[in-house]
Amino acid sequence: MQNYSDKELLSLFRNTHQRNYAFNLIVRKYQERLYWHLRKMVIVHDDTDDLLQETFIKAWKGLADFREESQLYTWLYRIATNEALSFLKNKRKKYLLPIVDVEKELSSNLEDDSYFDGDELQKRLQKAILKLPEKQRLVFNMRYFDEIKYEDMAKILDTSVGALKASYHHAAKKIETLLKNN
């Protein structure tokens, strides 16, 4: 597959006759990164699959109006992040569960997940991450695993770099404590 830049892909997308082709290329370019971003938030593969589809459907509907004020990948990450947060929020509403029970459910899913190949230490780490508040979890995953720059995270999460650094620091401390105590 030819490697197009985001600018070239968007330019291709604006050509009505090549729209489907361009969108297919965008999907192929970003599907993996977005999948893993979503997967770390909702744990279960099937849920991730649904959210990834929703993310790209929203991108398809909104891409014609995308004005390139932000980068394509930060825009897509933002859509995916919102989808993940909405999913977790709906889950809490649906079952009338307090936040701790959603975490328990996700931890339980982790235990039963046939698509989890990590060792015991990785499982403990994932469970500790699941105990963080959702926003901190997002920040931790994006920084620790995806190694996204704070400046880019600030654009995706619409917050300041300082707030993100503080959030990451708190999250890291909590996880360290949880791992020590467990």
Binding site: Y35, W36, R39, K40, H45, D113, Y115, F116, D117, G118, D119, L121, Q122, K123, R124, L125, Q126, A128, R143, Y144, F145, K149, Y150, K165, Y168, H169, A172, K173, I175, E176, L179
Partner: peptide
Amino acid sequence: EKRNTGKIPEGADKRNPFSL
């Protein structure tokens, strides 16, 4: 950019533990 991953998790690497 200075990495700020702290000490956690001791002994754990950043390999993706999930599969699909």
